[in-house]
């Protein structure tokens, strides 16, 4: 490579430093342009830091009593103590584990039954007619409302909590699977018939796979709802679980534990969603690329 070329490259590099975005910088109209809100992750970091700082500042200034507004250190200390010594007989890992087990069991069962029912509703008039009023009736009822019923029917064991989470998952998955079936382009079905595929092959190789993006979106929503319903589920006469821990601590005004539990649930929920997102990218790479 010649000397002149190298210096040209350096010049270009300097230019790139100044003009980080090339063409985007040349746009004269950005308000309303969706591309203008791309990036900006740095502001997320800033917002978390500022929130933490305000938290710390308010505790130091003692504007609010530490009884209601525990400091970040107090929450961290409680986290370490409960992680090592446990809370009411279970370590933090055990509380978290049992909560995760309940969520995953309810969620898993919801998917296991929800996907076939949703596919059935999307494919068959009779199944749709049967299930539609039932699901539409129970779907808008908040899970908290049937907690008493679940206690009466299922007792105080784990099954009641799993049932609640199952119900929360089931309707969401059914609706998304049904929408997934409806989203198939009739050309794909016709093409598959013309290529000699049987009904069963069309269901397996075309309809089900075509519905996967919708089903996966439903699963992500359902997972969020499940995690959110966990506290309600653990109100059902539990003695363990993160949700129960928070409820129990609030009874004794252990605000630091409550706050710690809330943050923990937020972090775990966020992590699960990130995992599901990356799984989605791996399993359904065609989703974000638009339909051909």
């Amino acid at each position: 490579m010649s000397e002149a070329n190298v210096s040209k490259k350096r010049m270009f590099f300097l230019y790139r430093l100044w003009n980080t975005d090339g063409l985007a910088q040349r746009k004269t109209v950005t308000f309303g342009d969706p591309a203008a809100v791309q990036g900006g992750a740095i502001w997320g970091v800033v917002s978390v830091l500022v929130t933490a700082l305000i938290w710390q500042f308010v505790s130091m200034a003692e504007i609010v009593s530490p009884l209601f507004w525990p400091s970040p250190e107090a929450v961290w200390t409680k986290f370490v103590v409960i992680a090592t010594e446990g809370y009411k007989g279970f370590t933090l890992a055990e509380h978290l584990g049992i909560s995760l087990y309940r969520v995953l069991a309810g969620f898993g069962l919801g998917c296991l039954f929800g996907i076939p029912v949703g596919l059935g509703m999307g494919l068959n008039k009779v199944i749709k007619g049967w299930m539609d009023p039932l699901i539409e009736f129970y779907r808008p009822v908040p899970p908290l409302a049937y907690v008493p019923l679940v206690i009466i029917w299922m007792g105080i064991g784990d099954s009641g909590k799993v049932l609640l989470l199952f119900l929360a998952t089931f309707s969401i998955i059914v609706i998304s699977a049904r929408a997934g079936v409806a989203s198939v382009a009739i050309e794909k079905i016709h093409a598959a018939y013309s290529l000699g595929a049987s009904r069963w092959q069309i269901l397996r190789h075309v309809i089900l796979i075509n519905a996967l993006p919708e089903i996966f979106t439903g699963m992500r929503v359902a997972m969020g709802v499940c995690w959110g319903t966990l506290v309600a589920a653990e109100m059902v006469a539990a003695t363990s679980g993160v949700g129960w821990m928070v409820l129990n601590a609030s009874r004794y005004l252990n605000t630091d534990i409550v706050l710690m539990g809330v943050i923990l649930m937020g972090v775990v929920g966020f992590t699960i969603d990130m995992c599901m997102r990356s799984l989605e990218k791996k399993l359904i790479p065609w989703k974000s690329k638009g339909r051909s």
Binding site: H190, S194, L195, G196, W286
Partner: peptide, 28 residues
């Protein structure tokens, strides 16, 4: 009814986007 003796080519949307080129071609 539809059958393998009549192949179809559509304007748009009939390829299986979850399959590769080769898998689409060998679908039948």
């Amino acid at each position: 009814g539809p059958g393998q003796d009549r192949g179809m080519v559509f304007q748009h949307g009939a390829l299986f986007e979850w399959l590769t080129v080769g898998e689409n071609i060998s679908f039948g």
